[in-house]
Design a protein around this nucleic acid. Sequence first.
DNA 1: TTCTGAACGTTGGTGGCACCAACGTTGGCG
DNA 2: CGCCAACGTTGGTGCCACCAACGTTCAGAA
Lengths: 150, 150
Amino acid sequence: MESTAPQSPAGLRTSPTWLLNQAAAHATRLLSDGFAAHDLRGYHYRLLAALAEDGPASQADLGRRCGIDRSDVVAAVNDLAGRGLVVRAPDPADRRRNVISLTDAGADEAHRMGDTVGRVQNDLLAPLSTAERDQLTRLLSRLLEHHARR
Amino acid sequence: MESTAPQSPAGLRTSPTWLLNQAAAHATRLLSDGFAAHDLRGYHYRLLAALAEDGPASQADLGRRCGIDRSDVVAAVNDLAGRGLVVRAPDPADRRRNVISLTDAGADEAHRMGDTVGRVQNDLLAPLSTAERDQLTRLLSRLLEHHARR
DNA sequence: TTCTGAACGTTGGTGGCACCAACGTTGGCG
DNA sequence: CGCCAACGTTGGTGCCACCAACGTTCAGAA
């Protein structure tokens, strides 16, 4: 009767939502550890990655692209600007907007964080073959694409 | 230049960790909505499910099985006990422990929440065939099993 | 048997992520 | 011109995950 094998209940263990959440939680933990070395968090990475890839953008646009609420973008951009990784400038063409741009330091940081994410990803997906990783990616993409309201 | 298609940056969109988190976030949102009808949250469901499946257990055991911190188990069990869904009794065989048991009402609620989760799951996995769902489940299981240090 | 270390339940606190309501400003359109 | 929508910002909420500390209780070693 000694439970040396606690294990989650089968009803949960075989439930995709549970598995999804557990896997995501694990990924988040690994990512957080990785990001900690940069003294930044997930929100920061998403923003930097978006800027590095698509160039300067307004805060609202960044929020939409990264799935971050406008109000949270404000705080994250504050952090990044305070660190000199991005610059916030009023948009001359639309005075409601700010244009957020990467600084050189920001571009460097984005690159470094990309490396970190790559390493974490390898760690996370270690047990899967390349084909299986693609499979997983495809399945998740289909899922998200379907629930694409947003 | 009008962005009618914001879309996440490709670097994120193809990254398994990003996909995992987005999919999990979506699942969590659906689950939360479902749980809201029961006026309960994820922690509560996990505990009820574990109790329904494996019978009475100590709080520490529940925490290990459900991946919930001991301190959080305390609060969740308080809620459940306050609602009359579980009973907390000292373990006569080990006075350090409490034995948590489902009440009849708790068993009912566990069953109803199970139905809710099933419905949410169908909704979430709607775009995937049965074979694909199995595939996804298997891949995620492998992932979690591998990182089974806990 | 006594000592020591571990496990347990509990309290209280932290941080990240996601989300919402409200406000004043600005822009576009009827 | 007047209205509505979008923008940035402030402030707040909730869930989940996690950590440190404490006193109690148990079990194994000295």
